[in-house]
């Protein structure tokens, strides 16, 4: 009996040691030292204002060097007074070559995105969003508005990811992927 116990104990010990060493082997250590830098996802916001008649007007906000370094350069927008405009918004990543079109991605995942538009200035009304997502909620890549008399104002464009679109204030929910404010001049 005593001997049997000792043997069992030795056997158990060997099993433990064996399994310990077995379990210790290797950590998958992939040493590819090429850092993959998905740093800036969106570098450029492009606004296209198309009047009912005449030449479309474009303005961009660009931050090609990412978060640090230089601040984004934002072009001013010059619109005509008392004119109906259709506003189309595009997003792209121009740090890559060729540039990536991110507008398509926003459209594909339209349920998860919302473009919020906020204006200041008496002659710049808030644009009315024309396009809808898969759930028939606002998307915001296309909108319309009519300018007032000559004056100045600003237009803030915000791209929201995962907002609560059915809530009372969808634009204060979700996380911001883009937020740029354009200076707008309205002339006769």
């Amino acid at each position: 009996m005593q001997l049997k116990h000792i043997k069992l104990r030795r056997l158990c010990f060997a099993i433990i040691l064996g399994s310990a060493i077995f379990l210790t082997t290797g950590c998958d250590n992939d040493n590819d030292n090429e850092p993959d830098n998905e740093q800036e996802l969106i570098t450029t916001v492009k606004l296209t204002f198309t009047p009912t008649a005449g030449i479309p007007i474009t303005a961009t906000a660009k931050d090609l060097d990412g978060d640090g370094g230089n601040a984004p350069t934002i072009q001013p927008v010059n619109l005509k007074a008392n004119t109906d405009y259709t506003l189309a918004i595009e997003f792209s990543n121009e740090s890559k070559s060729p540039a990536e079109n991110i507008t398509e991605e926003v459209k594909t995942e339209s349920d998860e995105h919302l473009v919020c538009l906020v204006t200041t200035g008496a002659s710049l009304p808030v644009p009315t969003i024309q396009d809808k997502d898969g759930n028939n909620q606002n998307l915001g890549l296309t909108s319309t508005f009519k300018t007032g008399v000559a004056g100045a104002g600003t237009l803030k464009v915000t791209l929201k990811h995962m907002p609560n679109k059915t809530g009372a204030t969808p634009c204060s929910t979700g996380e911001t992927d883009v937020e740029q404010t354009f200076n707008v001049t309205i002339a006769n």
Binding site: E40, T43, K62, D63, D67, T176, E179, Q180
Partner: peptide, 9 residues
């Protein structure tokens, strides 16, 4: 503040 495409930080 630091200005980025996502706004000010």
């Amino acid at each position: 503040p630091q200005l980025t495409i996502r706004g000010a930080f």
